[in-house]
């Protein structure tokens, strides 16, 4: 099984030199810690920053300088600020190469739900609907099951949708999943996790042969 850092490290394998990347709140943020040495990746924060740096040193926090998770951050040489319309302009125009975000549910045709539980939780979609409608490559980082132990990989989402048929890859503590016309496809298993265990925890249609390799990192 993967822990949160393991999921982030697995997703970091998708990064390529020169990529512009938007990381969502939670596990996706951790992907920044696994950018390979020597690879130049620019992080886009949709509140208006390209070239996001690490957290500031204690005492150097600047209230005017935050990321989309409202955390205090820093800039890097070459960073640039812009307004929210330009920020979503570059997202809508497909300039962002990779988007990593969390989800409450993903369906076997790549639909994603992550912004609302009717009658219970209403936080809003923030920038997620814009990102999933336009990013070229969308990866979901999430736990495989919800707090009740139910699969979050479903035949169809039950919660209000964030986007249609847009997710290309899902990484959970159990493995890496792609999509084909039938549904989810198991691509890699988390270390020590068997195919039967994955099948038992996946409600959506899943193609898995048992010969899928365990996840390895460079």
């Amino acid at each position: 099984m993967l822990d949160k850092n393991g999921i982030a490290r697995t997703i970091a394998r998708e990064l390529r030199d020169g990529y512009y990347v938007n990381l969502g709140i939670g596990i996706p943020t951790l992907v920044a810690n696994f950018i390979p040495e020597g690879m130049e990746v620019q992080l886009q924060s949709e509140n208006g920053l390209l070239g996001m740096g690490p957290f500031p040193w204690e005492g150097e926090e600047d209230p005017d300088l935050i990321n989309a998770g409202k955390q205090t951050i820093t800039t890097l040489p070459g960073s640039v600020f812009f307004d929210s319309a330009m920020s979503f302009g570059m997202i809508r125009a497909g300039k962002v190469d990779l988007t990593v975000l969390g989800a409450m549910e993903v369906s076997q045709n790549g639909d994603i739900a992550n912004w609302k539980i009717p009658g219970k939780m209403v936080k809003g979609m923030g920038g997620a609907m814009d990102l999933v409608a336009s990013a070229r490559h969308i990866v979901v980082a999430m736990q495989h099951v919800n707090k009740a132990g139910e699969s979050k990989l479903l035949p169809a989402c039950t919660l209000p949708l964030t986007g249609l048929a847009c997710v290309q890859k899902v990484v959970t503590e159990l493995g890496v999943f792609g999509f084909d016309p039938q549904g989810f496809v198991l691509l890699e298993r988390a270390p020590g996790v068997g195919v039967e265990h994955i099948k038992a925890h996946t409600l959506g249609f899943l193609t898995a042969h048992g010969s899928e390799p365990e996840i390895t990192w460079p």
């Binding site: 949709e46 319309a85 920020s87 979503f88 302009g89 809508r92 809003g124 979609m125 923030g126 920038g127």
Partner: peptide
Amino acid sequence: VELIPQGTLAT
């Protein structure tokens, strides 16, 4: 309350 996508709000 009307919740709308952030990019839609900006644009």
